[in-house]
Simulated assay, not measured.
Amino acid sequence: MTYAHRLATRADLPAIVDIYNSVIPERSATCDWEPITVASREAWFAESDPDRYPVWVGHEPGSPTVVTGYVSLEPFLNGRRGYDITADLALYLHPEHRGRGQGEHLLGQAVARAPELGFQTIATTIFASNERSLRLFRARGFQEWGRLPAVADLGDRLEDVVFVGLPL
């Protein structure tokens, strides 16, 4: 399937939250145990900046209001100035759009645009058991930079976190 993307708007926040909440019960991509709310993500969205820390939403061509996933570039390691050359990336897909090319499209967008936004590196963390995401990032050239053993408590198990990055 072919996908498109656009900058997220405030009107997309409920769909973004729904997509994020869809992965919580799976215990595959976040350490949150309880669903989040739109209100709890208002500040996060307000701090996004299309010229520096954008949030893009994916959609099928011809349906720009139906959000199928999102990717964001965010400050790395608490936003300390020395890390301004690096972006922390977050990528989440609607369950019906996983494995259909949406992840490749959104990740490709982030990698392509990051240098224009002033970044020299993109980094993110992925659970070691999330092979689908690890394959996606490796296919885009991301390399494993480290593994943090048993640092994530998912309720039913401890999970290793893989730190991956890509110099641009």
Score class of each variant (00 low, 15 high):
E159I: 14
I24A: 03
P64H: 04
R113D: 06
T125G: 12
T125L: 05
D160R: 05
D153S: 03
V162H: 14
V71D: 03
L89V: 15
L73M: 04
T2G: 05
R10E: 06
A114R: 07
Y53L: 06
L148C: 11
R132V: 14
T121D: 09
V162L: 15
I16D: 04
A128R: 11
L166I: 15
G101Q: 10
F76H: 15
L158N: 01
A128L: 14
L134H: 07
A39V: 02
E144V: 15
A8N: 00
A15H: 02
Y20A: 09
P61N: 02
V17Y: 01
G99W: 15
E74M: 10
I24D: 01
L73F: 02
E159C: 12
A128G: 15
V23S: 08
G99E: 10
R80F: 12
A15L: 04
G108I: 15
G103F: 05
P54W: 13
S129F: 13
L77I: 08
Y70A: 00
I24W: 04
P61M: 03
T124W: 10
G141N: 02
A46V: 09
W145L: 07
R140V: 05
D18I: 01
W56S: 00
A11H: 08
Y3H: 01
D88Y: 10
V57I: 11
E96Q: 13
G165I: 14
N78S: 13
T121W: 07
G108N: 12
F163M: 15
N130Q: 13
I85V: 12
S133I: 12
L73Y: 01
Q120V: 11
V57Y: 02
A128K: 11
E74I: 06
T2V: 08
L7C: 09
V162P: 11
G108K: 14
L136D: 07
P50N: 05
P14E: 11
A4R: 05
P95I: 14
F76C: 12
E96Y: 07
P167Q: 13
H59N: 06
R98I: 08
I122C: 00
I16L: 09
L13I: 03
S63W: 09
Y70E: 01
I122R: 00
W145F: 06
R140F: 14
W145C: 03
A114S: 10
V161A: 12
R135N: 08
A8C: 01
I19C: 08
D32G: 01
T121N: 13
F163V: 15
R27M: 08
